[in-house]
């Protein structure tokens, strides 16, 4: 890897944390009076705002109405000034759409949607400053906002990322560690029951293993075929 030493010999990380140490978390509920629920969270240098509207009548296309439970509508976006390089499209690109979908799946597992038939709950999350672990910070912010809105949930949804460097698991990755080429695992769970709401893994190490296997298979096959054709 290019120069960056993610874990020093003494066992410290780039920002001076131990391997299993989280970043400093600061949070606040009820930041806006207009919305039904809102929250702000800082996890190290990653900062996010979450706003919840609803439950309310389904707006837009009526066809989305579900007759036995509420529709959850999530929108994830990043402020144009949130990253080192200015973002052109704050939302609507493929990465945001995927993130929105993941948030939706996570909260459908936790919010008791069956109590609000034919209505809609909107969850909007915005990253104000991005320093790794965007998904988990968003989940944490949205959880606080949903609780602030008084919407019933089975449990808190807590999320965190974990990385893997030199056989050592690192908790709550920052941007440099996420981009360092190691594997990263985002996990959202309902802590009391230990149920997992979402698990997502982006890994290079695992892929390297697979590529080795595929490589072997292809080489073996080539050899076999070449031996056969020679005869």
């Amino acid at each position: 890897m290019a120069g960056l030493e993610l874990l020093s010999d003494q066992g410290y990380r780039l920002d001076g944390r131990k391997a299993t140490e989280l970043r400093k978390v600061q949070a606040r509920m009820g930041v806006f009076s207009q919305a039904d629920g809102s929250a702000y969270i800082e996890q190290g240098n990653t900062k996010a705002l979450a706003v919840v509207y609803g439950p309310h009548e389904v707006r837009g296309s009526r066809s989305r109405t579900l007759h036995d439970r509420a529709v959850i509508n999530c929108q994830y976006s990043m402020a144009t000034f949130s990253t080192a390089e200015r973002k052109r499209r704050p939302h609507g690109d493929r990465k945001s759409a995927e993130m929105s979908l993941h948030l939706k799946q996570t909260f459908e597992a936790a919010v008791m949607t069956q109590l609000y038939p034919r209505s809609q709950i909107d969850i909007y999350v915005k990253i104000l400053q991005s320093d790794g672990g965007n998904y988990s910070v968003c989940v944490n912010a949205a959880t606080l906002a949903v609780i602030d809105a008084g919407i019933p949930m089975r449990d808190y949804v807590c999320a965190c990322t974990v990385g893997f460097v030199d056989e050592t698991p690192l908790a709550d990755l920052c941007y440099a560690e996420e981009g360092g080429g190691g594997s990263s695992l985002a996990l959202a769970l309902l802590p009391r029951g230990g149920q997992i709401a979402l698990l997502q893994m982006d890994a290079m190490t695992a892929c390297k293993g697979v590529s080795k296997v595929l490589d072997e298979v292809v080489r073996q096959h080539l050899q076999d075929v070449s031996v056969l054709t020679r005869e």
Binding site: G30, D36, G37, G54, P55, H56, M112, I147, D148, A149, G150, I151, P152, M153, R154
Partner: peptide
Amino acid sequence: ASVAGEVERVDKLICVRPIKTR
């Protein structure tokens, strides 16, 4: 509990009333 709020007991019935709700 499924919301954050005060517990209200009426005889055998237990409710939780959230601080802020619709």
